[in-house]
Design a protein around this nucleic acid. Sequence first.
DNA 1: CGTGCAAATATTGTATACAATAGCCTGCAA
DNA 2: TTGCAGGCTATTGTATACAATATTTGCACG
Lengths: 235, 235
Amino acid sequence: MAAELSLPAEEAADGGSQQIRDALREAIVERRLAPGTKLSEADVGKLFKVSRTLVRGALQALSYEGLVKVERNRGAFVAYPSPEEAREIFAARRQIEPGIVTAAARNAAPSDIVRLRHLLAEEQRLTGQRGRDARRAEIKASGDFHLTLAAIAGNSIMERFMDELVARSSLVIALYGQSTASSCGHREHEEIAAALETGDAEKACRLMLHHIDHIETDLDLRPKNGIDLREALAI
Amino acid sequence: MAAELSLPAEEAADGGSQQIRDALREAIVERRLAPGTKLSEADVGKLFKVSRTLVRGALQALSYEGLVKVERNRGAFVAYPSPEEAREIFAARRQIEPGIVTAAARNAAPSDIVRLRHLLAEEQRLTGQRGRDARRAEIKASGDFHLTLAAIAGNSIMERFMDELVARSSLVIALYGQSTASSCGHREHEEIAAALETGDAEKACRLMLHHIDHIETDLDLRPKNGIDLREALAI
DNA sequence: CGTGCAAATATTGTATACAATAGCCTGCAA
DNA sequence: TTGCAGGCTATTGTATACAATATTTGCACG
């Protein structure tokens, strides 16, 4: 019933709850777990061979970043963002990302540019491939571009905000994206990186805003009513 | 040992953990709980007459918004933001709040302006009073001004981000604020509200940035070494 | 055949019990 | 007196047990 969830067995210094959180998060962001999927505490616990206590902690954590919706006495579900939420997510990105790229343009060291270039190359490579796994990896790489920008910008708080927004965007695209093409225009990422390389913050900013617009334009934020039905039964 | 924590007994629809979280949050933001204070699970549990389970949930939640620091096998402490963190918090606010006021200027209905005016009046009233309680209430009112702006802006995600930033700012001011005067220049809030009332988004934006600058200028972000010492022993 | 109630089942909410780790205190030796 | 060693206590980490709440199933009745 539950999708396959690899447990990487990589132990961090923090509690085992963190590992569950990370595994679930990755599965959600990479869209292996569909929005609306129920995450039963007992089931997840059995998968990871831990008690419900730890699972609860992980689910609660994920609910704080909006990836999981917990309903009292009903359980946890992979978030199923409404069109309204989707709009808010992208509105938030439009408010936040210009500041990020501006700061990134100011801070970027040559090594940062290299890092970005590597990401873009990887993304490019994956674009050429076929198959579900390649698509997943591409989704991840595409998100990582934005997250790397946030890291370069050098404000860990903003970075965390972006983390949440990118993850939730992935859910939204999974639900409302219509173009068969990749999640994000890869070409636009390249242009942004180029602007950053030349230190042209203003241009990078503008490109980023266009980029976000393009992503959102590709969404079909419904009149669909099939969604509501499904939401009613799944959530 | 622990400061007095009122439990308002107001039951929300959500779990009892939420009430503990809210009570602790309020105590931290209003500076009744000093940064660095240890929050023992057993002690807090006894205060609220609940098991450690719920307390843990609350503490974990607070750690997600940066108000509490949880160290593995050591326990939870009221966050003790470093000067570096303080700078990041205000940098984030400078990146976020202009967008908020711009959106607020666009969205503000007359009733919103009324709400802001009420807040300002309350703030004004409290400024005139003396005593710790008045000071606490003033801190809260000052923060509420910024939060209300975020609410008016109409993006619940940005609102949550601001929630976190305002709360953490309160901690920073508690630690590094030096002016005996109130936390925030009250006068500046009034000017921002006035700009909003006339729909002058550009002006409101500019005033907000100045306002944030003023708050940060009032901080003494150390060469102090007493802080490090205290941090070493308390955290 | 459909509807509504009721017991049964399953799942979550909370508390408690047990395990593991950290910090402290005592006592001994140099 | 100082420094270290060892166990001792206190606190957190995790698992389990019990309680409360939803959901489902089955049956009776219209």
